[in-house]
């Protein structure tokens, strides 16, 4: 079965590190055809340009296997908007935001100029969710309602403790997708049962998690062949293709 991993961090960071050769080895071992990669740690928070340049080089080098997401800290204002435009021009396929590392309330209008770029360029936006305070599912819903043309990915499906918000949020916004890393298999199962499988996408969040753990938990769910194909590849494929 074809697998696209929609959430991988790559590079050498203060807390997390994964180099491209390691990643390609892991992808081969776990039969992953393509990965969506974004920078790690300080490159998400402050060194956006260095992070984006690195991701751009990798995507150019491994065009058949990797897609890249750009990072831009909204506190940088126009500079971050220009950075996002530049990186999308160079072939990255979306925007990754982490309101915890970047220090803003997820629903704060400070992010709007970046989302306007995402909307006009028709690219998806991946948002870390699940951390108390300023990365919550209902905050993501605010963005999804303000920017209805943008497809948002609810990173980690709000793991750890916001599982009870996930289904109400998914039901209210057709432009929110749930990404599967870390969250318990039971939450994914109930999401499949109540909202269908069309807006659930596989992501591993390696190197913070592990591929055998993340793939293994989804195989416990007893999904049929069509559901598995959607979750592991087809839904992600639609998001990756939307920029064209």
């Amino acid at each position: 079965m074809k697998i696209i991993d929609f959430h991988v961090h790559i590079g050498k960071g203060v807390h997390r590190s994964l180099d491209p050769k390691q990643l390609l080895k892991l992808m081969d071992r776990h039969h992953i055809e393509k990965c969506v990669v974004c920078p790690v740690d300080e490159y998400i928070a402050v060194k956006n340009n260095e992070g984006n340049e690195y991701i751009g080089r990798l995507v150019g080098q491994y065009r058949e296997r990797l897609y890249g997401m750009a990072v831009a800290n909204p506190w940088r204002g126009k500079e971050s908007v220009d950075e996002l435009k530049r990186t999308l021009d160079k072939g990255l396929i979306g925007l990754k935001i982490n309101s915890i590392l970047q220090g803003f309330m997820l629903c704060d209008s400070i992010i709007d100029p970046l989302l306007q770029v995402a909307s006009s360029r028709n690219v998806p936006v991946y948002a870390h969710t699940g951390t108390m305070g300023n990365a919550l599912p209902f905050q993501l819903l605010e963005l999804a309602e303000r920017f209805k043309k943008v497809n948002f990915i609810m990173g980690h499906t709000a793991y750890s403790d916001f599982w009870y918000d996930v289904i109400p949020v998914m039901e209210r916004a057709e432009n929110i997708y749930a990404e599967t890393s870390h969250v318990s298999p039971a939450v994914i199962r109930s999401l499949v049962d109540k909202c269908g499988v069309q807006r659930i996408i596989f992501g591993s969040d390696i190197p913070e998690s592990k591929l055998d753990v993340e793939i293994g938990k989804l195989k416990l769910l007893g999904l049929n062949k069509k559901q598995s194909e959607c979750l592991f590849a087809l839904n992600a494929g639609r998001l990756l293709e939307q920029k064209k």
Binding site: S184, P185, K210, D212, V213, G216, K217
Partner: peptide, 19 residues
């Protein structure tokens, strides 16, 4: 493991330690 709610979490959490 938090077992008791569903038939997934014990295997999943064992898998984490085994990995």
């Amino acid at each position: 493991s938090d077992v008791g709610f569903d038939r997934y979490c014990l295997r999943h959490n064992l898998n984490v330690i085994r990995s």
